[in-house]
């Protein structure tokens, strides 16, 4: 079970969180101007890296804040947590 650092509540067990998929996917400002392909790209296409992955987590059983986590998809090591405002919170090891 992962140990995840919520930027507001600190280290908590994975069961307190829910996963939100890849972080940093910006909603296009004018969807109607996009082609079907461009829209489908936003809608469906996700990175699936072997290595560092930026992802969204929600402290759903805690403060209910969404935040970002950088996690290695092979060994699951979490290198940092960050608020979505951009200021990183280092995850101690």
């Amino acid at each position: 079970m992962l140990l995840i650092k919520c930027p507001w509540c600190g280290d908590r067990a994975e069961t307190e969180f829910s996963y939100g998929g890849e972080a940093g996917i910006k909603r296009p400002p004018a969807p109607e101007e996009l082609s079907d392909e461009q829209w489908a790209d936003y809608l469906f296409m996700r990175k699936n890296p072997r290595g560092q992955h930026q992802e969204l987590w929600n402290h759903s059983q805690g403060c209910r804040r969404w935040f970002g986590v950088e996690r290695h998809t092979v060994n699951y090591e979490i290198s940092r947590s960050f608020t979505l405002a951009g200021n990183d919170i280092e995850q101690g090891t």
């Binding site: 939100g20 909603r27 969204l56 929600n58 209910r64 969404w66 979505l84």
Partner: peptide, 8 residues
């Protein structure tokens, strides 16, 4: 609602 308000 929280997802969109907080992330987007």
């Amino acid at each position: 609602l929280e997802l969109w308000l907080q992330t987007e």
